[in-house]
Design a protein around this nucleic acid. Sequence first.
DNA 1: TCTTTATTAACACAGTTGTACTATAAAAAA
DNA 2: TTTTTTATAGTACAACTGTGTTAATAAAGA
Lengths: 177, 177
Amino acid sequence: MLEQGIEGASVRNIAKEAGLSLGSLRYYFHSQEELMKYARELVSERITQRVDKIFASDKNPNEKILEVLLELLPQTSKLGREPKVRLFFKTLAVQPEKTAAVDQDGVYLAVKNVMSNLLLLNFIKKNLDIGIETERLYALINGLALNSLLNPDELSAQRVEEIILVHLNSICKESVK
Amino acid sequence: MLEQGIEGASVRNIAKEAGLSLGSLRYYFHSQEELMKYARELVSERITQRVDKIFASDKNPNEKILEVLLELLPQTSKLGREPKVRLFFKTLAVQPEKTAAVDQDGVYLAVKNVMSNLLLLNFIKKNLDIGIETERLYALINGLALNSLLNPDELSAQRVEEIILVHLNSICKESVK
DNA sequence: TCTTTATTAACACAGTTGTACTATAAAAAA
DNA sequence: TTTTTTATAGTACAACTGTGTTAATAAAGA
């Protein structure tokens, strides 16, 4: 996927990349859909694990939350390949009859996690609707992921971080900076 | 594209949908890339035209701006198919060596237009970086487009409008409501 | 009327796709 | 040792892909 795009992710190419024959690969995965589903869930799990690890570290909350959000984006993730591949699957799902559920999206879980943490810390400005703010942040993350992948030059890692900081500041109280 | 997804957009299927033979279609478009480029630009142009039309209407600025932004999203556009197809092309571009330039994206032009209008009207809060706010709004629009297409049930048209209104209010002065 | 151009259709070619089936080798169990 | 799983590889098939070529038809111009 990273080298040849979605079209290159054929069963044959994947088998070749894995050093297996076509028959061998199909011994483990009886269909392409099964293989794709496994990969999709694997990527989601890895992202979730990485996010949990950051949350479990002993930094201050502000740093944690920023680091988590940056970890979800292709340009700024230390994980490297996973957020990019996740977006590939996401765009692949933009197909009739192939819609993947949101709940199994590690990024959505991470965003919800970030928001409930901000709420628990009493960082959120008054009169904000948490549901709407969660979906707004989730959309921002997905949009940044898409844009930074399509236009890495204009939307650099530093730029992405600036935008996320601006957004966080806009939903957090003045005192938190 | 709308019926069978990106994979269904083969030269043969398009010819059939257009009521032409394969040879006839290739008389006008010598390659698939040429055909795709034409369609991509056509969609972008239509969106731009629609946006210009709204800006040229005689409503009050607040209404215009909201209407323009809603027009860029699949669920809320009165244009109907174009924003959805545009997103298909956008996700199609998430492929190595196939990156389409941002400048020819009608949606990006529209967002820039919205921001400079807000600035001209003196609606924007003080101390905001216009460049960053433009990219933030552009990412939000693309994210909303992606999410509402993948999850039309949770992210309904009304919900999308609420989110956009919240975002506009967050970057505009208190007096503008 | 004759000739040139525009338009349509049909077929062929080489390549790729997902899937199914079969034979072979290694490992484990009896 | 024999038998049964586990694992790997190879091949075949039908369907599709983009592209190229060639023939036939309609329209327009000289």
